[in-house]
Amino acid sequence: MVTDTLIEDGRWQEVDLPALAERAAVATLRHLGLDPDDWEIAVLACDDARIAELNADFRDKPQPTNVLSWPSAERGADQPGTRPAQPVPGTDGELGDIAIAYDTCAQEAAAACRSLADHTTHLFVHATLHLLGYDHVRDQDATLMEACEVQILGKLGIPDPY
């Protein structure tokens, strides 16, 4: 398994978060030509209070957010709009950590008239891409990242969230 999930908030059980995280991570890695068996991602399924603490500690933003990711290495592309260099299997199998907050995700899914499972899957694809060096700060990078997300989600039968 790619993902190792710690569930702090039991409400995540209603959508089988460990299975969603695994499915999204595997689909993302395969889409990018990476063998899922070579990689590991640690997942924390928490609530808004916990993710607000993490957001304050790591980003100096003391409020909840939907998902946070911590890559194990800097993998970002130097040139805007170009794909990041892929990690090399066998050098370090840990891609990084992801934390996801139930309250914010459930609210966002309801507001967008999407199922919690589909929205959560999208956020895991998004966060896994972050672990692999994709970002959305620069416009060209955002375009590339969103296109990857849409392609991966399409393969999973999830409509374009944008």
Rank of each mutant, 00 (worst) to 15 (best):
T3C: 14
A56G: 04
P36M: 05
L129F: 07
C113T: 14
H130T: 08
A127W: 07
V150N: 09
T82V: 12
P71A: 00
D160L: 03
L32M: 02
E40M: 12
G93K: 02
A85D: 11
L6P: 05
D135I: 11
F58D: 10
E14Y: 04
I100E: 02
D48E: 11
N55R: 06
A112E: 13
D4F: 12
L20E: 12
L123A: 01
G76S: 15
D141V: 10
R83Y: 15
L144M: 06
A110S: 03
T82D: 09
Q107E: 15
P71L: 02
C105N: 12
Y102E: 07
W70R: 05
H126I: 09
G133N: 04
D135H: 13
H31P: 09
L68Q: 05
N55P: 05
F58Q: 08
D4N: 11
P80F: 11
E146G: 00
I100C: 01
W39L: 01
D48M: 02
A106T: 03
Q140R: 12
S69F: 04
A21H: 10
D35C: 06
L123E: 11
H119G: 12
I51W: 02
D92R: 10
A45P: 03
V125W: 11
N66M: 14
S115F: 10
E146L: 13
Q151D: 15
D57Q: 15
C105I: 10
I51G: 04
P84C: 06
T104L: 09
F58N: 06
P84E: 04
L6E: 14
A21V: 13
A99P: 01
H119K: 07
T3A: 14
G81Y: 07
Y102M: 05
I51M: 01
R83N: 15
E22Q: 14
D103S: 05
D97K: 05
Y134P: 03
I7W: 01
V26P: 01
L6I: 15
D9I: 07
E14D: 13
S72K: 05
D4P: 00
Q151Y: 14
N55K: 03
A77E: 06
P71V: 00
P84D: 03
D141F: 09
M1I: 14
E22D: 13
C46D: 08
N66G: 15
P159H: 00
V125Y: 10
D35W: 07
A77R: 04
L132Y: 07
L144I: 09
L54H: 00
G96A: 02
A111W: 07
Y162W: 15
A117T: 10
T5K: 04
P84W: 00
A101L: 08
F124Q: 07
L123R: 08
A117I: 06
G133R: 02
I7Q: 03
L144F: 02
P161A: 08
C113E: 15
T104A: 11
A109G: 02
G93I: 08
